[in-house]
Design a protein around this nucleic acid. Structure first.
Lengths: 211, 211
DNA sequence: ACCTGAACACCGTTCAAGT
DNA sequence: ACCTGAACACCGTTCAAGT
């Protein structure tokens, strides 16, 4: 936890500690002061190597998205295309707070740029023009991030309970469907199944537009 | 701007001022103190009627999503279904900071609940089982919010410039597609066209699964 | 030169003092 | 009882004092 052998921790190891902190205690727990305390260095020493808070968030995304190379590049284009976004969704849901923290700016980390290159190249290989490819890529990309952003981190049970309470209080006359199907609707708020369904649906549409 | 006739502003009028503040100066500008100053009342007076910061955010979403009744309920189910999400996307992109501020908790405002009721009822009418309907609804819903969340608020030009600079610096050998199609890719980062494309694509898939 | 403590200008919320 | 000022425990970043 503390800096080893008196050496100041690197940008990447600070980012690692920050990701661990967010994973453990949620996005609101990430403050420069608290993180520095966790690592065991003065705040200003950390500030010096990692820059501002926004730059720390960049470093966190950099770190977390580096593993894209693991996605295989064999198989049909649509299978590879799907794998890319399953990978992205996995990364973002194993570190849930992160999407929320970084929503304000476009992701330009090496891993994400490589994802875009591979995704767009796959679409080009399947016959999409650049204009078609960028829109197809973008809609799949935003679908993935949208689903990942809505996964509740620390307490999904509490989120479901809040939803259930709110829906159960509705007047059945105006809300017949929601009140009738409460037990089906409430578990559905976890976005995971919705992601897979939407991704398959989107990619099916892309394939069909090529046939 | 100031409270009229000595009366303390209502929860809704505080929310109105808060939405205006976020529209004008972005999500980071929304603090309890600054908002109270804008309205012209002491912070604690505001706190009293609106509750905590999280409850203020709820009030803002409540206010902004009230107009769903305007969506017409005639036409084919898939047209109505599409209109619901176009409406949601419109609302969220005219008040961009809001999605980001409220990502942490499920939207349970009256307008959003009514959206869910109508959307799910439309799917049920088209023959989807409850289990199918909730997943279909959820993926469309998250796609919409995902696209809306990534619209950059205050300075889309700056966001595009940042993207362009990052992509232009890539080595063409490893990133042939991105460097070749820079002028097509960069404008594509605005999520609007991607939203419409993805929505049509998703709904086409839903229709096909019913045929 | 490098490092970092102290200080600054904030923040949301509690708590108690005013009426 | 209602209202709200002062205080508390934070926050990110600047600035200048240390070595």
């Amino acid at each position: 936890m503390a800096a080893q052998r008196g050496l100041n921790p690197s940008r990447d190891s600070i980012a690692e500690a920050a990701v661990a902190l967010v994973d453990r205690e949620g996005p609101d727990a990430l403050t420069m002061r608290r993180l520095a305390d966790h690592i065991g260095i003065p705040v200003m020493t950390m500030q010096r190597t990692v820059g501002s808070r926004d730059e720390l968030l960049d470093a966190m995304v950099d770190r977390v998205t580096l593993t894209i190379a693991d996605v295989p590049d064999s198989g049909e284009w649509h299978e590879q295309f799907a794998s890319l976004f399953v990978w992205l969704h996995d990364v973002m849901t194993t570190h849930p707070g992160l999407v929320r923290l970084r929503l304000s700016r476009p992701f330009l980390s090496p891993g994400v740029v490589r994802l875009a290159e591979r995704g767009l190249a796959l679409l080009a290989g399947a016959g999409f023009t650049p204009e078609e490819a960028i829109i197809a890529y973008r809609s799949t990309y935003l679908h993935t991030l949208g689903c990942a952003a809505y996964v509740d981190h620390l307490d999904p049970a509490a989120a479901q309970q809040r939803t259930r309470t709110a829906l159960a209080a509705l007047p059945p006359a105006q809300f017949p469907y929601l009140t009738d199907h409460l037990d089906t609707v409430v578990p559905g708020v976890s976005g995971n199944a919705a992601f897979e369904f939407g991704l398959a649906n989107l990619i099916d549409g892309l394939r069909r537009s090529r046939a």
